[in-house]
Design a protein around this nucleic acid. Structure first.
Lengths: 215, 215
DNA sequence: TAATCTATCGAACGATCGTTCTGGTACGCA
DNA sequence: TGCGTACCAGAACGATCGTTCGATAGATTA
């Protein structure tokens, strides 16, 4: 009676044997988890929700990721974890400071668009995770901030940036970019590049400004 | 043994009888809930957490607010719900468009500072609530956005704003302001007004910009 | 004084949470 | 052919969740 039960329980992938590895189940789990986390939040999404959406057992998640934190960690690994390196890469290379600043900004926007949901979860839940993930997440946030502060300091020594509060400026830039991944819809009326240019222009003028004294 | 138990169980407000209303328990509950929601999130905070922090029973929360959603709704009532009206009030009144824009911005920043934690919870969890609260929250978000789009359109007809994408500009402004309440610490080195002016300058220059053609 | 109301407690209920355990099937390799 | 390992289902466990339910003590009212 056990084997008949096993055969009947297979929902729709009956063409494969029960013990056969499903094509990319791990990736399916990651994608499903990202979708649910992004809409309901990390705490608001249960392991069972994810498993049920894919029609698999909850054990699969523990098999692949150990526990719920491990699942979130795996999501971080392929997405947000690479962001600081991208920005620092864009920060290096040639060109004068303003050009490099523009390059960092564009790289940041591109990464945010590529991993939109993952970044959204990261920004919303990063300070509400338990100790382990929090450590990593805080470090990522800091490297990103430092990248912006660094280039803004450069721009300041060149006289392009007037304000001495480069950290506040960096926060403002982060606000614009991080808000972008909350309102941007890929199926919107504007092409991604048009949106990019609009945001880049806003940030550039905001950062550089013109000397005060004009009311 | 019941009455002795009652007397012993009172932690520090023993001068009042057990059935006497505690001084502002409702406000204490709201404040505690805000603190916990802001650090652990709505889903991450249990009714018991709030009650335990104040050393009271869970029933008092249900007595005052009905249920967990009601508690959140009460928080919204005294804080974020008034934001659209504040902005619209600042939008009215005299002065030319640029001055009114500056006034809206400052009102927005002041409100964000006044209800920092409440706004933070609102912005993080507003699209993860159940139906009732979601309706209200979405309406608030929309009115705030519309206020900014409206004044930006005005600025555009006056030629001060060059870009036709006023909605994206409004999103950018919202990003800066909403991010501000995530990084701002009242005990920081700068006075609130200094921070305000820094942010206002950034947004103003970002919105107005200078005509393109300069690399 | 008697009855009602308000504020609060502590226990309890059913649901759901993350996680573990047991077991069974199929593939790779000897 | 036999065996170890990877993969997966389903039941179960203890903890915790939001919520409900009497009971009680003081305040208010008639």
């Amino acid at each position: 009676m056990l084997d008949t039960n096993t055969n009947e329980a297979v929902p729709d992938n009956a063409q494969e044997g029960a013990g056969r590895e499903r094509t990319g189940l791990r990736e399916e789990l990651l994608q499903t988890a990202v979708d649910l986390f992004a809409t309901r939040g990390f705490k608001g999404t249960s392991i069972r929700d994810i498993a049920k959406t894919l029609g698999v057992s909850v054990s699969v998640i523990y098999h692949y990721f150990g526990n719920k934190e491990g699942l979130w960690s795996a999501i971080l690994d392929y997405s947000v974890k690479g962001l600081p390196a991208r920005l620092e890469a864009a920060l290096g290379g040639g060109g004068h400071a303003l050009e490099r600043f523009r390059r960092v900004l564009r790289a940041h926007l591109a990464a945010s668009a590529l991993y939109q949901k993952e970044s959204k979860i990261f920004l919303i839940d990063y300070d509400r995770m338990s100790a382990a993930g929090d450590q990593t997440s805080k470090a990522i946030q800091k490297r990103v901030l430092d990248a912006y502060v660094g280039i803004l300091e450069e721009l300041r020594t060149e006289g392009l940036v007037k304000s001495a509060q480069t950290k506040i400026l960096a926060f403002n830039v982060l606000g614009v970019v991080n808000w972008y991944l909350r309102w941007y819809r890929p199926d919107g009326p504007l092409a991604p590049d048009e949106v990019y240019e609009e945001i880049v222009a806003f940030v550039l003028y905001g950062v550089i400004g013109t000397p005060p004294g004009q009311s």
